[in-house]
Design a protein around this nucleic acid. Structure first.
Length: 298
DNA sequence: GGTAGACCTGGACGC
DNA sequence: GCGTCCAGGTCTACC
């Protein structure tokens, strides 16, 4: 089954895929051919319980989504809605692009259709993944997410090796020791377990925050109330929700700012924030897509 | 409100 | 092969 979805222009699927590291985390995938064309794959468990695989490619007016299974009308609508969300197909970045034209370090943004961030279909998935990026190497994040998905994700019938991201209920039913020792989440295990149980029980309606009109500072407080989510993680989640008032400052960003404006001298989070303060409600995006002078593999 | 120490893992390094 | 050190954000206790 194939779906055609339009995108607000300028749009580049490749730019979305390369926007950050999520593409390397299960159940996202990208074989060599898709790396060259900018496409991606994703395995998802639909509300009906069925696990489907999506093959997403750039098309004339947006993207085409090939689903490996025949879908009901309800399922097809769900897939379309999720892909629109994941790729931010409807996002209007024209104001940011106008501002970026005046800054040489951001002049590339509009021409290359950058600005969108790849995100997961659910805020639960993005929150778990964000927690698993904290206080570890990128290789560690990949390993933890891979273990988490392979242990608790529902398998694709045609290829059980490929699995969807676990639903909260499945994770909630496990215990901390399994998450620590088997999935090797370390001290993050109780954070992920508590999050899953809060969402599964209905105590925390995480998905409602995707479209809430709460002020950004209030939304940030909601994220900071989640165990394992601190200033960096909260800012990262806000970015994914299109709120760019806070910068997800991590050690890499501190290093970049240090070399960009302080001659490599030690700086802290406050210097990073000060460097982008003038960008106001767009500061997170300005930071994210800044053309850094200092070369680093990040 | 600010700060020190603990948390957990894997990789780098020295022996 | 083994032990030690270090990097990576957040939490808790304490001031």
């Amino acid at each position: 089954m194939k779906l055609e979805l339009s995108a607000r222009h300028p749009f580049s699927l490749s730019a979305v895929v390369k926007s950050h590291g999520w593409i390397r985390l299960a159940p996202f995938g990208q074989d060599e051919q898709k790396r060259q064309t900018g496409g991606l794959t994703y395995v998802d468990q639909l509300n009906s319980g069925r696990v489907v695989d999506m093959d997403i490619r750039e098309a004339a007016d947006g993207v085409s989504v090939a689903v490996g299974q025949e879908l009901t009308a309800t399922e097809a609508a769900e897939v379309a809605e999720k892909v629109r969300w994941m790729l931010q197909l409807d996002l209007d970045l024209s104001t940011f692009h106008i501002l970026a034209r005046k800054e040489p370090k951001l002049a590339h943004v509009e021409a290359t259709a950058r600005g969108r961030l790849l995100r997961s279909p659910t805020l639960f998935e993005d929150t778990v993944k964000t927690i698993l990026t904290t206080n570890t190497s990128w290789a560690g994040t990949i390993r933890m997410v891979e273990g988490f998905v392979s242990q608790f994700g529902a398998p694709l019938a045609a290829n059980p090796a490929r699995r969807a991201f676990p639903v909260p209920e499945k994770v909630a039913a496990t215990d901390e020791e399994t998450l620590r020792s088997s999935v090797r989440l370390g001290y993050r295990a109780p954070y992920v377990l508590e999050l899953a149980r809060s969402v599964a029980s209905g105590a925390l309606d995480l998905e409602a925050l995707k479209t809430t009109d709460l002020p950004t500072t209030e939304l940030r407080k909601r994220f900071l109330a989640i165990k394992g989510v601190g200033p960096y993680a909260a800012a990262n989640l806000l970015m994914l929700l299109g709120r760019y008032n806070f910068i997800p400052v991590d050690s890499w960003g501190i290093k970049m700012v240090s070399h960009e404006w302080y001659g490599g001298e030690p700086v802290g989070a406050s210097e990073v924030e000060a460097a982008f303060e003038r960008w106001g409600e767009w500061q997170g995006l300005a930071y994210w897509f800044w053309d850094w002078s200092y070369a680093d593999e990040g």
